[in-house]
Design a protein around this nucleic acid. Structure first.
Lengths: 153, 153
DNA sequence: ACCGTATTCGCAACGATTGTTGATTCGCAA
DNA sequence: TTGCGAATCAACAATCGTTGCGAATACGGT
């Protein structure tokens, strides 16, 4: 994501207004290197600007996604996550704790794809799923993901 | 996915029962080469067995996923899709019509990943996003995806 | 055939996200 | 500086996809 001041200009350029709420979000997202959900962004924004509406957060996130300043990720069932990093990178997803991290991957353009049949590729997303170092250490100590309670163990 | 008779055996082997509803789903999914949502599976099942509950469809889909007979995909916001093809393949997603197709990709193991830091990779998913041949032809003729109605054109 | 237990179904509930409406405020171009 | 249109908020309601719950039913090992 571009820095707040550039985003302000970009917003104005397409007829969107730069409100205090949006500025708070700009700055929060710009300084964020994780993959927050809308809910957690709202939480963080509320700390800085009490009373900011969740509705407003969604609105602005959608605008940023539409402008290509933010990437919306669907890595797990449930909520979307938003990635302020729009450079050419990919993702690591921990099956245990649900954590998401960025990785840089070489050789993506060298993938041999069979069966394209006229499909025009715009973006290639690579997602590695497995277990993160933290979860490997504690081995089930730090995991937040709960197992299926409907089936016996 | 394995054929219905093998699935029946597998279900019994782990203490799950083989009901008429499940047999319908087994056969429907086995003969399916697409990426149906739970809803559309329920629709197809209803044609064969009127009155089958959506709840039951979800239950069985979850069981199949847990057994590794079915792959659950999160490719777009909204509903999950289920892929009866569990062989080593990847996906093509059309941004316009939302269609999903299987592709076979070579060179995945040759990807150079930087920043793993102890992360243990279990699965690598590659998703190509772009425009399918059908949507390229008609160019907006066949697309089902609707643009954002809240913003002027 | 019997019986325990899984399964079914319908409905309610849930989390995530969007629509609505109306009053109020506020950004920003002219 | 002024005026218009946009944005916000509050307060809900609504939607979508999915799961929890409880009573009735049926599978399948013995």
């Amino acid at each position: 994501m571009r820095p707040p001041n550039e985003l302000s200009t970009a917003f104005r350029a397409i007829g969107l207004k730069v409100t205090p709420q949006r500025q708070v979000l700009f700055s929060l997202l710009h300084d964020h290197d994780g993959h927050p959900s809308a809910e957690s962004i709202h939480l963080a924004a509320s700390a800085v600007m009490p009373g900011i509406s969740l509705r407003t957060v969604y609105q602005t996130l959608n605008d940023l996604v539409a402008m290509g300043e933010l990437q919306q990720l669907q890595l797990t069932p449930g909520s979307s996550r938003f990635d302020p990093n729009v450079s050419d990178h990919h993702h690591l997803v921990c099956d245990r704790c649900g954590d998401v991290r960025d990785v840089y991957v070489g050789g993506v353009t060298g993938l041999e794809v069979q069966g394209l049949e006229g499909f025009s590729i715009a973006i290639t997303d690579v997602v590695f799923r497995g277990t993160c170092a933290t979860c490997l250490d504690g081995s089930s100590a730090t995991g937040t993901r709960t197992p299926d309670p409907t089936r016996p163990t």
